[in-house]
Simulated assay, not measured.
Amino acid sequence: MLPWIQLDAASIPGGGGELRLKQRGTEFSIMLGTNELMNSRLSGSEEALATLSWERIKERQRPHVLIGGLGMGFTLRAALSVLPADARITVAELVPAVVDWARGPMAEVYKGSLDDPRVTVHVGDVAALIERSRAAFDAILLDVDNGPEGLTRESNDGLYDYAGLRAAKAALRPKGVLAVWSQGPDQGFTRRLSTIGFDVKEEHIRAGRKRGARHVIWLATNGPAAAKTTSQPKANTRPPRPRG
């Protein structure tokens, strides 16, 4: 078997550790310590994040979709395959090196998706972008960290607590969809989505097309405003686990 070769490393802003890009033949892996965050051979659930969301908004004219987390580009490529020519896609990626990897050693994996005229890359924190947006997006797709229970960066938790979900709700247009990828289930997060006023559906999708672990995708449709619940604590039902 071919050995893994490390191609590059990059620090995660905010003290989240170091990402390492590795290659073995045509296979790529992005690691955080001993945890594999993503692998170029497993893309099923990331693709479903885009296609399942599109089913919810496919009647929209000139849809605008925000993707939080570039990863290996699987969600972006799937979105481009279903969204119309007049769509706009904003991809927010916190780590500049990940964008460089997409245009450099992993260019074949991305297949030119970043050069599509529908795509704008925002290098920065997706949470900050959501916070300053109002009724801007038809869909927000979050594949950030390990899901609602962060693995790489504590500040990612702010995307998934009550304040973060209210910000996402405000950033969505009426009946827009918030889609969230997670390595595993989280009942507390499901409750928070419902409490905020989202209409929630939970999907379980295999990492690979026919094999691999089952990942979770929440599809939360923007509904009427809910009562304030800032005093309710965030549930912590499971420890963070590596993707794969």
Score class of each variant (00 low, 15 high):
residue 3 P to R: 12
residue 3 P to D: 12
residue 5 I to V: 15
residue 5 I to R: 11
residue 6 Q to H: 13
residue 9 A to Q: 14
residue 11 S to H: 14
residue 11 S to V: 13
residue 12 I to N: 14
residue 13 P to Y: 08
residue 14 G to C: 08
residue 15 G to S: 09
residue 16 G to Y: 06
residue 17 G to V: 01
residue 17 G to E: 05
residue 28 F to C: 10
residue 29 S to W: 03
residue 30 I to V: 15
residue 32 L to D: 03
residue 32 L to K: 05
residue 38 M to R: 11
residue 45 S to N: 07
residue 48 A to W: 00
residue 48 A to T: 04
residue 49 L to Q: 05
residue 50 A to W: 03
residue 52 L to W: 04
residue 58 K to N: 15
residue 60 R to I: 04
residue 61 Q to E: 13
residue 63 P to S: 10
residue 64 H to Y: 00
residue 65 V to A: 06
residue 67 I to K: 12
residue 69 G to Q: 03
residue 72 M to A: 10
residue 72 M to Y: 02
residue 74 F to C: 08
residue 76 L to V: 05
residue 76 L to Q: 04
residue 80 L to G: 04
residue 80 L to Y: 07
residue 85 A to L: 09
residue 86 D to E: 06
residue 86 D to I: 00
residue 87 A to I: 01
residue 88 R to F: 03
residue 88 R to T: 06
residue 91 V to P: 02
residue 92 A to V: 08
residue 92 A to H: 06
residue 95 V to P: 08
residue 96 P to S: 12
residue 96 P to T: 10
residue 99 V to K: 06
residue 101 W to F: 08
residue 102 A to N: 07
residue 105 P to W: 12
residue 106 M to Y: 10
residue 109 V to C: 07
residue 109 V to R: 05
residue 115 D to M: 12
residue 115 D to K: 15
residue 117 P to H: 10
residue 117 P to E: 13
residue 121 V to S: 06
residue 122 H to N: 14
residue 127 A to G: 15
residue 129 L to Q: 12
residue 131 E to W: 11
residue 132 R to Q: 15
residue 134 R to C: 05
residue 139 A to C: 06
residue 140 I to N: 00
residue 140 I to L: 04
residue 141 L to R: 05
residue 145 D to W: 11
residue 145 D to S: 08
residue 145 D to P: 01
residue 153 R to Q: 01
residue 153 R to S: 01
residue 154 E to C: 00
residue 155 S to F: 10
residue 156 N to Y: 11
residue 156 N to M: 11
residue 156 N to H: 11
residue 157 D to S: 14
residue 158 G to Q: 14
residue 159 L to E: 00
residue 160 Y to L: 05
residue 161 D to M: 02
residue 165 L to N: 14
residue 165 L to E: 14
residue 166 R to G: 11
residue 168 A to T: 08
residue 171 A to T: 12
residue 173 R to H: 03
residue 175 K to V: 05
residue 177 V to T: 15
residue 183 Q to V: 10
residue 183 Q to C: 08
residue 184 G to F: 07
residue 185 P to T: 04
residue 192 R to S: 09
residue 198 F to Y: 03
residue 199 D to R: 04
residue 199 D to I: 00
residue 201 K to Q: 08
residue 201 K to N: 04
residue 203 E to T: 12
residue 204 H to E: 04
residue 207 A to F: 06
residue 213 A to H: 12
residue 216 V to Y: 09
residue 216 V to D: 05
residue 220 A to C: 01
residue 221 T to K: 04
residue 222 N to C: 03
residue 222 N to Y: 00
residue 226 A to L: 00
residue 226 A to Y: 00
residue 231 S to G: 07
residue 233 P to A: 10
residue 236 N to E: 06
residue 236 N to G: 05
residue 237 T to D: 14
residue 239 P to F: 14
residue 242 P to T: 04
residue 243 R to D: 15
residue 243 R to N: 15
